[in-house]
Amino acid sequence: MSKEEAIVKLIPAFRKYGYEGASLTLLSKATGLGKASLYHYFPGGKSEMAAAVFEYVDSDFSKSVLKTLQRDGEPIVKIQAACLRLRQFYNSGRNSCFLAIMSFGEADKLFHDKVKARLELVIDSLAKVLVEAGIEKDIATIRAQDAIAQIQGALVLVRILDDTEPFERVIEGLPGRLLG
């Protein structure tokens, strides 16, 4: 198994158990690798595994969602495309947000600056599209923050209710709420 394959297999374990709950035993089980093999790939232990997963998920999000917002085109088209990518990225809300997972407990101590910078980039990227659509910068930033809050809230509802409808509803209405 390559290191990248191991990282991909670690993602669901961190999403399900969080940083603190993802023990080395669970991470070993998730990858099918023994603890010694995990340490071979990740000599820094669980924190290095989490950092590698963070980078992998962040890269995937950037390629699918942020690049969509940053390309040329009409703002409404970019936002609609980003919503489609969000639906795919979060598997209709079934995938927890890795930024949220890494924002509490021990993970927050380790990754706070990275998580904050990433969240600010997402908000800024979305706000820039709204400014392109003629919305004042301060209002665009507030709408972008509100959109993130709605998405995060929908992800929580999906997890607790075991129903993707709240996420689908938020994503479906997002372009109108952002540009309306």
Score class of each variant (00 low, 15 high):
Arg85Asn: 04
Phe98Ser: 00
Leu161Asp: 09
Ser28Phe: 00
Leu33Val: 05
Cys97Asn: 13
Lys29Arg: 07
Thr31Pro: 04
Gln152Ser: 13
Tyr17Met: 03
Lys137Arg: 14
Ile123Tyr: 12
Ser92Gln: 05
Thr68Val: 03
Ile148Ala: 15
His112Met: 12
Thr25Asn: 08
Met1Lys: 13
Gly93Asp: 08
Val170Asn: 08
Tyr19Pro: 04
Ile139Trp: 09
Leu174Ile: 03
Thr25Arg: 08
Met102Asn: 10
Glu106Ala: 05
Ala100Lys: 05
Arg94Tyr: 04
Leu110Asp: 12
Lys116Cys: 08
Phe167Gly: 09
Leu24Ser: 14
Lys63His: 12
Ser64Val: 04
Ala36Cys: 00
Lys63Ile: 05
Thr68Phe: 01
Pro43Arg: 05
Cys97Gln: 09
Ser92Cys: 02
Tyr17Val: 03
Arg71Gly: 05
His40Thr: 15
Lys9Cys: 11
Leu110Phe: 09
Ser28Ala: 01
Lys46Tyr: 11
Val122Ile: 07
Lys35Pro: 00
Ala144Cys: 07
Val65Cys: 11
Val77Trp: 09
Ile123Thr: 12
Pro43Lys: 08
Gly93Thr: 07
Val8Phe: 02
Val156Trp: 01
Ala13Glu: 06
Asp113Leu: 09
Leu69Cys: 09
Glu55Phe: 01
Tyr90Ala: 02
Ser47Tyr: 05
Gly134Glu: 07
Phe42Gly: 13
